[in-house]
Computed example of a mutant assay.
Amino acid sequence: MKPLLFVYDYLVMIFGLLWLALLCLVWALISTLLYPLLPSNLRTRIGRRAVMLGFRFYLASLTLTGRCRFDLSELDQLRDAGPLILAPNHPCLLDAVMIISRLPNVACVMKGKLMGNVLFASGARLAGYLPNESIQQMVHQACDDFAHGSQLLLFPEGTRTTRRPVNPFVGSVGLIARQAQVPIQAIFIETESPYLGKGWPLLRKPDLPIRYKVRLGKRFEPQDNLRRLTAELETYFSQELQQPC
Rank of each mutant, 00 (worst) to 15 (best):
A96M: 13
A121P: 02
L53T: 08
G158M: 01
L64S: 14
V109G: 01
Q136W: 08
R125A: 09
G54F: 00
G116Y: 04
V26A: 14
S31L: 01
V51D: 08
L86E: 02
P91C: 05
S61D: 12
M110K: 08
L78G: 00
L38H: 06
E74H: 10
C68I: 12
A127N: 07
L154V: 06
S134C: 05
L153C: 00
D95I: 02
T161V: 07
F55T: 08
R79Y: 08
A142E: 08
L42D: 13
L103C: 07
L38W: 01
N105L: 07
L33H: 04
L53E: 14
P88T: 10
G149C: 09
L103S: 07
L126M: 12
E133N: 13
A60L: 14
T65C: 05
S122G: 13
L130P: 02
A124V: 00
P83L: 09
L62G: 10
G82V: 09
V97I: 15
G116T: 02
Y35F: 10
Q77A: 15
R45N: 13
F70L: 05
L62N: 11
L152D: 03
L114M: 11
I135M: 12
L126Q: 04
G149L: 13
L126H: 02
P88R: 13
L34K: 10
E74I: 03
A81N: 05
S101C: 08
T32L: 15
L38Y: 01
A50K: 06
V26S: 11
P104K: 06
W27K: 02
N105F: 06
A127F: 02
P36R: 00
L42Q: 14
C143K: 13
G123L: 01
F57V: 08
F146K: 04
T65G: 06
A121S: 15
N105C: 07
K111T: 00
A121W: 04
N105K: 12
G82I: 12
V109R: 01
